[in-house]
Nucleic acid binder design. Structure first.
Lengths: 248, 248
DNA sequence: GACAATTGTCCTATATACTGGACATATATC
DNA sequence: GATATATGTCCAGTATATAGGACAATTGTC
């Protein structure tokens, strides 16, 4: 197999593991010969793409990736604006705020600012989650027909972490509601005591390229929830406008 | 040439360019065959390591790198602590604050928070600069002997952006002073009107693994400068202590 | 202290990834 | 509209990168 593909696999394995791995373990998870793995890892270490951790015995992502990601943020206008909106929304509400988007057929958090409230964070930046698990998941596919949605979302993704299965027709109806309201919220999906509020960021064609989310405690005082919602909508609309200006 | 090495070169070329490039231009700068370049770029695009920019005609860093860098920050304790110190120092002083370290034989900024003052930022995250251009550059080599320093710093790095050449003996004397004072400052090196204050972050062996820096206007009110310095030193010492605890 | 499992390095043969060129389109220049 | 330059795709031969195993050194376990 090609070295480049092996490297890309290797990085994905580390991302999924979310912690430093020993090289032997890496080779096992990659189904790659140990000699090849050593060769590639040493090349990546020399480039700073990987670094050794914990007494040199394990490897994980390195400083060079931090540099490249900084370039990405400088060059990618929407991502930069979204990060600022997430920071401002968190500062304005004190609640955990996120910007999310599709990665292939999954939901991923791109930016997150953690608020005062102490939730167990179930989603981390870049971790792929099934679309039906999240409020944003409804908005992110709301440009598709019901058939397209069911073809797009893998069968097994309709099963929640708790084992309960979401009905496919129900999901499609929720997507339609999300499109109608430019908004969707879920209670107790990520966390029993959390409500997740999501609004879309739409491109000039009206497709939701991302979502602004706010995570707060369930059954909060309606006035306060209303204020949060206003700020959230304003945030999403600013980003949608910025996106259209760029396109137009 | 090996695909993996080509990919690493390709990423470095984009990092140096600091803007999206056309594929043809990429191939030229890499001295790589166009067919190979197309192949690699398409592979990297599919993986999200690269993305297309500006009407699909150019490529630059992609979202996946942002994810991996987020993993790096989660896993790398010192980098995470340093980022927080930079944020706090900037918040506490209102001045541009940085955490810097060696990358091979060059100076690089790892974290930066821009203050109120409007300097033209000459250094960006991950951009390699000659050590003699910076205050931190003195501290980062202060565990070396004069001979080691002169062997370590490339000849041409002693020439400043304005063309003036720094005397090598003077530089070594400045390094010695930096070691003695646990501090170094430069005036007008990056910017005519800026003073750069730097303190070391030392590991258990006393080697400066990084520097906290504060960039401020020259000839500032001595009291204010003194307050900045106190905060800067406190920051550096907290990081040094955190590093020793980890090691010890 | 013997045993087992892992780490890191080195080697050779062969499958294959890379090169270099040709080609059709597209885009810019005069 | 003719010329020049760039883009994106495809192909076949060969240089070479990868697989796979052997080896010594290290580490952990009972």
């Amino acid at each position: 197999m090609r070295g480049v593909d092996r490297v890309l696999q290797l990085l994905e394995v580390l991302h999924t593991a979310r912690e430093p791995l020993r090289i032997g373990e890496l080779a096992r998870r990659l189904n790659a010969p140990r000699s090849t793995t050593y060769d590639l890892v040493n090349t990546l270490l020399a480039a700073g793409i990987l670094e050794t951790y914990e007494e040199e015995s394990r490897v994980f992502f390195g400083r060079t990736l931090h540099f490249y990601a900084s370039d990405y943020m400088n060059g990618h206008r929407l991502s930069r604006l979204a990060r600022k909106e997430v920071q401002d929304l968190c500062a304005g509400t004190g609640q955990t705020s996120q910007y999310c988007a599709l990665t292939r057929d999954k939901f991923t958090v791109l930016h997150m600012e953690t608020g005062n409230a102490m939730f167990k964070i179930s989603s981390d930046i870049g971790i792929a989650l099934p679309l039906p698990w999240t409020a944003s998941g409804r908005l992110l596919v709301d440009h598709m027909t019901a058939d397209e949605i069911l073809a797009f979302v893998p069968e097994e993704d309709f099963i929640l972490p708790n084992g309960h299965r979401i009905d496919r027709a129900t999901f499609c109806a929720e997507v339609a509601a999300a499109r109608r309201d430019d908004f969707f919220s879920t209670k107790g999906l990520v966390d029993d005591f959390a409500e997740c509020l999501a609004v879309p960021v739409r491109d000039a064609a009206g497709v939701a390229v991302g979502c602004m989310c706010l995570i707060t405690v369930r059954d909060r005082d309606p006035d306060e929830r209303g204020r949060y919602l206003d700020q959230l909508h304003a945030s999403g609309e600013r980003l949608s406008r910025a996106l259209s200006i760029k396109a137009g």
